[in-house]
């Protein structure tokens, strides 16, 4: 990751905009109250999407191709964040990451400190919230691959793992990519869970939280710009997904 470094509690990581000097950004007319939250959002969302894309695609493949019982239950369980209020998700994360328990001990041994109120905590919250999108899109796309291509590959003598890599996944790539894009968009747009896990630490403010603060404190000009940027990004991402074709995960 460009400019990534290990972040401590509340430390603002240099991120995507670490590549671009602040003076250039100022010269372009992009004020710090935009690129600050924007870089936090982008950095967190990119990290979250990398994790989600790999795990979500893998799990989607297992659920699509496997024949073990309880596949429906597993998909339902992992899809819960889509139906839960973000405050509930945030609460669970806060208590699991912050309060006593097995998760906390694991984090402390991995990261040296609990993840609440840190940048990494934001990434975790976004992973949880965006995972269902990637999972469902991937599972739907992989299930939708014409089984006969795989049969032809079996007749050619290819072992199962090569069939997965050379036939199934390439044929499903549009839906899988769409799932990753949706997950990225969802991560960028997360508000409730992020706010609860990370608090309003100024160094770890994402775009949606920045907009909320702007409205709350009455800075209408800032609010308008922040809202417009996020609207444009969401529209662009959705448009990209629609170009990738019809995959119906629900």
């Amino acid at each position: 990751m460009p400019g990534a470094c290990v972040g401590g509690t509340g430390e603002h990581r240099t991120s995507v905009t670490g590549l671009v000097p602040h003076s250039w950004l100022n010269a372009l007319g992009i004020p710090p109250w935009v690129w600050g939250p924007l870089s936090v959002s982008l950095h967190a969302a990119i990290e979250a999407t990398l994790v989600v894309a790999v795990v979500g695609c893998a799990l989607g493949f297992l659920l699509a191709k496997g024949s073990f019982p309880g596949r429906g239950a597993i998909e339902t369980a992992f899809s819960l964040p889509m139906a839960l209020p973000p405050t509930v998700v945030g609460w669970y994360l806060l208590t699991q990451l912050g309060g006593p328990g097995p998760v906390r001990s694991a984090e402390v041994s991995l990261f040296g400190h609990p993840l609440t109120f840190t940048f990494t905590g934001i990434v975790v919250a976004q992973i949880v919230e965006s995972f269902p999108y990637c999972l469902r899109f991937s599972r739907a796309a992989i299930s939708g691959v014409d089984a006969r291509f795989e049969q032809a590959a079996r007749a050619m003598g290819l072992p199962q793992w090569r069939i997965a890599l050379l036939v199934t996944l390439p044929l499903a790539r549009r839906g899988v990519v769409a799932g990753a894009v949706m997950a990225f968009g969802r991560a960028l747009g997360d508000f409730g869970a992020t706010m609860i896990v990370a608090g309003s630490v100024p160094m770890a403010t994402t775009m949606p939280i920045a907009l909320y603060n702007a409205v709350f404190f009455g800075s209408h000009g800032q609010a308008m710009v922040l809202a417009l940027v996020q609207l444009a990004v969401a529209f662009g991402l959705l448009f990209g997904v629609s170009r990738l074709g019809k995959v119906r995960p629900w």
């Binding site: 747009g189 949606p208 609010a223 609207l231 969401a234 529209f235």
Partner: peptide, 19 residues
């Protein structure tokens, strides 16, 4: 049109609230 209608899925809720 479907894309516009689908916006609230990934649009941050605060943006929806703002508009």
């Amino acid at each position: 049109l479907e894309t516009i209608g689908s916006l609230p899925i990934i649009l941050p809720p605060t943006v929806v609230g703002y508009y």
